[in-house]
Design a protein around this nucleic acid. Structure first.
Lengths: 163, 163
DNA sequence: CAAAATTTATTCGCACAGGAATCATATTCA
DNA sequence: TGAATATGATTCCTGTGCGAATAAATTTTG
């Protein structure tokens, strides 16, 4: 079995685990992982538009629209047209949405977090560096797909200049 | 931003990149990554049933059924009832299916492979080790969710005894 | 042997996820 | 100014993914 197969299998396991955790979250809180991620992004960003959210959470605009639909239906988010630019839509948390954000549990599965915290520090750093490196290697080709969650201070020193 | 956020963001980028590569494959070959993975599993296993395939590729039975539907519609796979056990279904590659398997391109994106091969050997090892470690940490908790792609020899020695 | 429990595959409902197409609004430039 | 272009959001379509419910067959058990 080649290295590529090993990588592929590990990736499939990881993707599946993340998906399973998402369903677990849905049972616990009524919200899936993508919904919680978007909600958190909305909490950080004032005047968030589908476009900016799309960049912030690395999802396509149609996907963001679909998730916002559900969040709006659940009463956690409101949408209104921007007064400055009639094309844009501004999404905001409702009080219930803010409540949901602060009550949100960890998105990563408890088992992973436990194991991660138990690991020696060098291994934690190795894992983070490797994941960032893989992400970088994978979307280096579509140059415009790299934006990601820019916040005030760039805490992710190792990542280097995206975009 | 916490380490957890960094991990989560890297994972989302990776998941997105894998998904995008799957659509690229669809454009190139008419088959998505999960379809190709299933096709390859069918090539390895004689008398494959949805159940056995489900274990082999780490997908749920309903998902396998859905993918088999499309592969059958495309004329790459045939299904027939098992004569020994009327509950089971046996899926087999057609000649066209065998052809598709042997013509299948790399499932990982070219950009990633290029970057990976260019990386120094220590980094390649680090990446593989980290991905396997993360996969392991993530599905260690649901013990029964670990099956994974067992092939002749178990090359993923670190994973420990599944079920 | 017949009823109950189990196993296997499938259907159904839901939530992503993205590309293509569409519609409305802004911007550019001839 | 007015037409061409660009941008932003959404809709439509297809394809995963899974859990729950269902159907069909087999095995177990009373």
């Amino acid at each position: 079995m080649s290295e590529h197969d090993v990588i592929l299998i590990a990736l499939r396991r990881i993707i599946r685990a993340v998906d399973i955790r998402s369903r677990e979250l849905e049972r616990e809180t009524g919200l899936t992982a993508p919904q919680l991620v978007l909600l958190q992004a909305l909490g950080r960003e004032a005047e968030a538009t589908p476009k900016s959210l799309s960049r912030a959470v690395s999802l396509s605009p149609p996907t963001v629209t679909a998730i916002l639909d559900r969040l709006e239906r659940a009463g956690l988010v409101t949408r209104r047209r921007s007064p400055r630019d009639g094309r844009s839509v501004i999404a905001e948390l409702t009080p219930a949405g803010r409540e949901a954000v602060s009550a949100a549990p960890e998105l990563l599965q408890a088992g992973f977090l436990r194991a991660f915290r138990r690991a020696p520090e060098w291994e934690q750093h190795m894992i983070i560096a490797a994941l960032q490196r893989v992400a970088e290697m994978m979307d280096c080709q579509d140059v415009d797909a790299a934006p990601i969650l820019e916040r005030s201070g760039d805490v992710t020193q190792a990542a280097g200049p995206d975009r």
